[in-house]
Design a protein around this nucleic acid. Structure first.
Length: 221
DNA sequence: ACATTAAGTGATT
DNA sequence: AATCACTTAATGT
């Protein structure tokens, strides 16, 4: 793991306040600054892998993270994206028993993450109502997102799943131009590259996207 | 110029 | 929707 530890400079403190000021008290914000370590992760880096033991609860300050599940053959399936202000529900369940991750998390783009030690995370549940709210709310939001991805998996055809995936990706990256290959999309959606190429071609014919090498634009959403 | 990787496509199941 | 087999296009050395 080559995450770079960075300091709590004024810019990052401001980012924390912007992302969490409406949720957390001054007191809790200070606690986070003192006990939370701030890290910078680069696009594509794996933060946590399946089987890894959790020691920290990650909170996303800036950027986007994708959460993936893996089958026996090593093929992946995207569960959902995390954005600024989100946290990983896996670590919460880890706090209550099994400390091994059942998912893989990778940086969707350059991001900044706050790592809160697990003992602090559970202490704060006792001492801060706003923290408690945050943890339980996140848990339920994560659960909804999981249900949504099950729905698309079960009820949408591949064509619609691809389009939905692209829109989601555009949303978390804040850009209608996506730097992605057909192979990467196929991996995230657990299908083959040929299938993705065909679907993208048909989306292009419908005028909804434009295709380039290693890159595509969403024209309509 | 050559090798490698990404993407396009017909045919078959 | 998946797989095979092949082609074409873009990019790196």
């Amino acid at each position: 793991m080559s995450m770079k530890k960075i300091g709590w400079d004024e810019e990052n403190k401001l980012a924390l306040k912007n992302a969490f000021g409406f949720l957390f008290s001054e007191e809790l914000l200070t606690e986070i600054e003192t006990h939370g370590q701030l890290f910078a992760v680069a696009d594509g880096e794996i933060l946590m892998d399946i089987g890894d033991t959790m020691q920290y609860m990650p909170i996303l300050l800036e950027g986007a993270i994708k959460v993936l599940r893996e089958d026996e053959e090593g093929d992946e399936l995207l569960l959902y994206f995390l954005e600024s202000g989100d946290t990983c529900a896996m670590t919460m369940s880890c706090c209550m028993g099994d400390r091994k991750s059942k998912v893989r998390t990778a940086a969707e783009r350059d991001s900044k993450i706050i790592m809160v030690p697990l003992d602090k995370m559970s202490d704060w549940i006792q001492s801060y109502a706003d923290w408690r709210t945050f943890v339980f709310d996140s848990y339920s939001v994560r659960l909804s997102e999981l249900l949504e991805s099950i729905d698309s998996l079960a009820f949408l055809n591949m064509h619609d799943r691809v389009y939905k995936y692209l829109k989601n990706k555009m949303m978390v990256n804040g850009d209608a131009e996506l730097n992605v290959t057909h192979r990467e999309i196929a991996n995230d959606l657990h299908t083959s590259r040929v299938v993705i190429s065909r679907i993208l071609k048909s989306l292009e014919r419908e005028g909804r996207i434009a295709l380039h090498r290693n890159r595509l634009e969403i024209l309509e959403w």
